[in-house]
Deep mutational scan, measured.
Amino acid sequence: MSIQHFRVALIPFFAAFCLPVFAHPETLVKVKDAEDQLGARVGYIELDLNSGKILESFRPEERFPMMSTFKVLLCGAVLSRVDAGQEQLGRRIHYSQNDLVEYSPVTEKHLTDGMTVRELCSAAITMSDNTAANLLLTTIGGPKELTAFLHNMGDHVTRLDRWEPELNEAIPNDERDTTMPAAMATTLRKLLTGELLTLASRQQLIDWMEADKVAGPLLRSALPAGWFIADKSGAGERGSRGIIAALGPDGKPSRIVVIYTTGSQATMDERNRQIAEIGASLIKHW
């Protein structure tokens, strides 16, 4: 067993022997301040990774656009098919120029040779490549099948209805392509620590998230040296922004954090800054 596999296998073990965790309302004060600064709703939840206990939450059962955070769930569904012998990570998928959609920095470079399922998941999570996500959605049967996968996990809230990039439209009061912070946090925890996926697939999923290259201005910008984070960000229309993450000190994750916002007129930089400040408060009061 590799060191990384050992780390993920012992996530519940280490967490069980940690000192009790206590909620700190100071972080919620910052979440509410972010709402004021952005002029928009902000949803927040913080779960203990081992027990699933909610440590703090704000608007945990209000719907927010998922945006690209759905790509972690998508690759979880792909990995479940791999575990069941219905898919192979090494299978190569070929596609054409007509398949390319807006923001496809990886797939646009491989029109000639195609990409493997493993490479597509890596591109979808680490670079948020939209064509990679659409190609992977095709392998599982489309958005409705991802929703069905989530329902089978016990998540009857999260739903995907459309493809990239239309799913980022974020129309107010439109339930399409949305989740709730509580539902997303619980589902992410199941994917990373539950028995739904094999140990190898859980490790692969967290490795992809740990290698995320496009979430630097968010929670990662607030992390002290030595902290662990595996995350996936999302951005959408109407001032929408979000991030889902597993993080913790001492090089291992111990909490799940989900943050979503929508309806702001603020710039992307300002949305990023507010999420980073929430992260800084979380870490300060850990």
Rank of each mutant, 00 (worst) to 15 (best):
Q86K: 15
T187E: 02
I45F: 15
Q274V: 13
L223G: 03
G76L: 06
T116S: 13
M268Q: 09
S281M: 12
F70Y: 04
P224D: 06
S264V: 06
G251E: 14
D177P: 02
N50G: 12
D36S: 14
K252S: 12
T178L: 01
R238K: 10
R255E: 01
T107L: 08
G141Y: 05
F70G: 07
P217D: 11
F228L: 06
T179M: 06
I54Y: 08
Q274N: 10
L160Q: 05
P181Q: 00
S96W: 09
M67H: 07
W163C: 09
A183K: 10
T267Q: 12
M67V: 10
P253Q: 09
I171A: 15
M115D: 04
H94P: 08
K252H: 11
D250M: 14
L188S: 05
T107F: 00
E35D: 04
L136I: 10
N173F: 14
M66F: 09
W208D: 05
E56L: 07
R162V: 02
Q37H: 13
T69E: 02
E62I: 07
A200P: 14
D83F: 02
L197F: 07
A124F: 02
D212L: 02
G263T: 06
L111K: 09
E108K: 13
A280E: 15
R118D: 13
K252N: 13
F64W: 02
A182E: 12
T267E: 11
E119R: 05
W163P: 08
D83N: 06
L38W: 08
A185E: 02
K144L: 11
E237I: 09
W163V: 10
V29L: 14
N130Q: 00
Y103W: 13
F64P: 01
E87A: 07
W208Y: 06
R220Y: 03
G248K: 01
V78C: 06
T107V: 09
G236F: 02
D83L: 03
T262P: 03
L89V: 07
L79H: 02
P224M: 05
K213T: 09
G154A: 07
Q265V: 14
M209G: 02
Q97T: 13
A225W: 10
A245Y: 03
M127N: 08
A225E: 12
G236N: 07
Q265Y: 14
E26L: 11
L160W: 01
E61K: 14
G236Q: 01
M66A: 07
L49Q: 05
L38R: 05
E56P: 02
L49V: 14
Q88H: 14
L111C: 10
K71V: 01
G236E: 01
A266G: 13
A132S: 08
T138V: 12
G226S: 12
T126G: 10
G234K: 00
A183F: 10
P25T: 12
R159S: 09
L55H: 08
L135T: 06
H94I: 11
L199K: 15
H24P: 08
I278N: 03
V29Y: 12
S233K: 03
K144M: 11
N134W: 01
G279Y: 05
S233L: 02
N173A: 13
A266E: 15
E270N: 11
A266L: 13
K213G: 08
L199N: 11
R162K: 06
D269I: 11
N130Y: 02
L49K: 04
T138Y: 14
S96Y: 11
S96C: 09
N168C: 07
I45D: 02
L205G: 01
A40T: 09
A246D: 03
F58Q: 09
M209V: 01
M67K: 03
D231W: 01
P25D: 14
T179G: 01
P143M: 03
Q204R: 11
N168W: 04
D269G: 12
V72E: 07
S233D: 00
H285W: 14
I275D: 01
E210Q: 14
A132D: 02
D99A: 10
F149P: 01
H151A: 13
L47A: 09
L218P: 03
Y103S: 07
L282E: 01
G114L: 03
A245L: 03
D36E: 15
K53H: 14
A185H: 01
I206K: 10
P143E: 05
E195N: 10
T193H: 14
I278T: 03
L89N: 05
G248P: 01
A280N: 15
T112K: 15
T198C: 11
N152T: 13
L146S: 01
D231R: 03
D36W: 15
I125A: 03
L47Y: 07
H151T: 13
L47K: 04
V78G: 00
K252I: 14
T131W: 04
V117K: 01
R176K: 10
T139P: 04
S240I: 04
D250K: 14
A211W: 09
Q265S: 14
L74G: 03
L167F: 04
T139N: 12
L89S: 06
A211D: 15
Q204K: 09
T267L: 10
A235N: 05
H110D: 05
T193Y: 11
E169A: 14
A124K: 01
G251K: 15
H24K: 15
R162F: 03
H285I: 01
S233G: 09
Y44M: 09
L150C: 09
A211G: 15
E56S: 11
M115A: 06
D48H: 07
R220I: 01
T198L: 09
D269Y: 11
E164R: 01
T69K: 01
R118I: 09
V257T: 07
C75G: 08
L100Q: 06
T178R: 02
M180E: 12
D99Y: 07
V214N: 07
G39M: 10
I283L: 09
R81M: 10
L150E: 00
V258P: 00
F228E: 01
V106Q: 10
P253C: 09
A230L: 04
A183C: 09
Q203C: 09
A123I: 05
K53A: 14
L191D: 02
N130V: 01
R91D: 07
R255C: 04
R159L: 06
D269F: 11
T179E: 00
R162C: 06
M127V: 14
Q204H: 12
I171N: 15
S281P: 04
T198W: 05
R162I: 02
D155E: 06
R81E: 06
R238Q: 13
V31C: 12
T27Y: 02
V258K: 04
P60N: 10
S240T: 08
D161L: 00
S201I: 04
P217N: 10
L100E: 03
R162Q: 08
I243N: 01
L49E: 03
I256V: 13
S122P: 04
T139I: 14
K284T: 11
L282I: 14
M209Q: 02
A276F: 11
K190E: 15
I275Y: 06
S51H: 09
N130S: 05
L135I: 12
P105V: 07
N173Y: 13
L218Y: 03
V106H: 08
S281T: 13
I229W: 03
D129Y: 00
C121H: 00
L137H: 01
E164G: 01
I283V: 10
P60F: 08
V257E: 03
T131F: 07
M209R: 00
F70H: 09
L146N: 03
D48R: 03
G194L: 08
G239M: 03
K213A: 11
S122L: 13
K144D: 11
E237W: 13
A185L: 00
S281G: 08
A183G: 08
K213M: 14
I45S: 07
M268T: 09
N98K: 14
V157W: 11
G216V: 06
E164Q: 02
G85D: 11
T147E: 08
P165C: 07
G242W: 00
D174R: 03
P65Q: 03
N134R: 02
N168T: 07
A133H: 04
Q204W: 07
G251T: 10
G242F: 01
P253N: 09
P172Y: 10
S51I: 07
W227S: 00
I283S: 07
H94G: 09
T186K: 15
D161N: 08
G226E: 10
G251N: 12
G90I: 11
Q97E: 14
Q86H: 15
R220C: 06
K232Y: 02
Y260L: 13
D231G: 05
G226K: 10
A225S: 13
G239I: 02
L79C: 04
N130W: 00
E26I: 10
E35N: 02
N272R: 03
L191A: 05
L150F: 12
L192N: 01
V101G: 07
G263A: 08
E46W: 04
V72G: 02
V42D: 00
V258I: 15
R41K: 14
G141L: 05
D269S: 12
P181D: 00
